[in-house]
Simulated scan of single mutants.
Amino acid sequence: MATVMVVDDASFMRIMLRQLIEGAGHTVVCEAVDGLDAIDKYKKYRPDLVTMDITMPEMEGVDALRAIRQFDPRARVIMCSAVGHQHRIVEAIQLGASDFLVKPFMKERVVEALHKVSQAIEAGKK
């Protein structure tokens, strides 16, 4: 199973995602509260995948995605956004995001995205 970093400025969203991720059998290795924190922790923990909120203080998720993918072009990032940020989601996908989740989260959709990215990770290791 994958190691995961959860990035969101709202603690209740990090807790919710952690529960869904760990319930699906993955391990949350760290959490970050904004894009700058995410970049630092990605470099330190090197998780298999990242869930990244789009709208955060200090540095938004799309900018953090760009920096993480420059550091590690193989980084797997699932973007998270509320409805109404479609242009940012499109930009994130163009920058290499692996998938996206819409808030409020539906458990089945989170598990599906984790499974899809985990399969891609495993295929890349072969």
Rank of each mutant, 00 (worst) to 15 (best):
M1V: 05
M1C: 12
A2W: 02
T3D: 03
T3P: 03
V4G: 03
V6E: 03
V7E: 02
D9L: 03
D9E: 04
D9P: 02
A10R: 10
F12W: 03
R14M: 00
R14C: 00
I15D: 10
L17W: 00
R18M: 05
R18A: 10
Q19F: 08
Q19P: 09
L20R: 04
L20D: 01
I21Y: 00
G23K: 01
A24D: 05
G25I: 01
H26L: 03
T27H: 12
V28A: 00
V28F: 00
C30K: 03
E31S: 06
G35M: 02
G35I: 01
L36R: 13
L36W: 10
D37A: 07
D37Q: 04
A38H: 02
K41S: 08
K41M: 05
Y45P: 11
R46A: 10
P47G: 08
D48V: 02
D48R: 07
V50F: 02
V50L: 05
V50Y: 01
T51W: 02
T51C: 02
M52E: 06
D53Q: 02
I54D: 01
I54E: 03
T55H: 12
T55L: 12
M56C: 07
P57E: 04
P57T: 05
P57D: 01
P57Y: 06
E58G: 13
M59Y: 05
E60G: 15
E60T: 14
G61H: 03
G61W: 00
D63A: 14
A64K: 06
R66D: 12
A67E: 06
A67V: 06
A67Y: 02
D72R: 10
P73N: 10
R76Q: 14
S81D: 04
H85M: 14
Q86G: 14
Q86N: 15
H87G: 15
R88D: 15
R88E: 14
R88F: 14
I89H: 09
I89Q: 11
E91C: 11
I93V: 12
I93F: 10
I93C: 11
Q94K: 15
L95M: 13
G96A: 11
L101H: 04
P104A: 03
M106G: 15
M106R: 15
K107T: 10
K107R: 13
R109K: 12
V110A: 06
V111Q: 09
V111G: 07
V111C: 08
V111F: 04
E112S: 10
K116S: 13
K116V: 12
K116C: 13
K116A: 13
V117I: 08
V117G: 07
V117C: 09
V117P: 04
V117M: 09
S118I: 09
Q119G: 15
I121K: 09
E122F: 14
E122A: 15
A123Q: 15
A123V: 13
K125W: 11
